[in-house]
């Protein structure tokens, strides 16, 4: 399942853009590969993130994996529900499992992200 209304990274994050604000999460493929997620370390609210640089961590039972920032900017909101309910990412990766919102400092970076069919091609390959 790859929703058409957002963009994707090769590292399996999704991003949903509303003006200068970009909401970020990980894809269904990512959570499926990770298995049961037990802990998520999100970037700090107010902090800066840089495109395609690790800004957080997802721990599943069996492995650890990094969250890459799809775009650069300032983190203006984080989904603190995930502190106590990291399983939301497994259950609803594109909805309740969203992770943080970035106010983009360089919106042109968006052009380097993948559209849904291209991302689908990547995970199917």
């Amino acid at each position: 399942m790859v929703p058409e209304d957002r963009l994707y990274t090769k590292e399996h994050e999704w991003i949903s853009i509303d003006g200068k604000k970009a909401k970020v999460g990980v894809t269904d493929h990512a959570e499926e590969q990770l298995g049961d997620i037990v802990y998520i370390e999100l970037p700090k609210k107010g902090g800066n993130v840089k495109q395609m640089t690790p800004c957080g961590v997802i721990e599943s039972v069996k492995a650890v994996s990094e969250i890459y920032a799809p775009v650069s900017g300032t983190v203006i909101e984080v989904n603190s529900t995930l502190n106590d309910h990291p399983e939301k990412v497994n259950q609803d990766p594109y909805g309740e499992g969203w992770m943080f919102v970035v106010e983009m400092s360089n919106p042109s970076e968006v052009s380097s992200l993948l559209k849904a069919p291209d991302y689908l091609g990547l995970v199917k390959a």
């Binding site: 298995g35 049961d36 039972v61 069996k62 497994n90």
Partner: peptide, 9 residues
């Protein structure tokens, strides 16, 4: 088989 329905369950 690594898992069938999830390691936690």
């Amino acid at each position: 088989p690594l898992e069938y329905r999830g390691i936690l369950e």
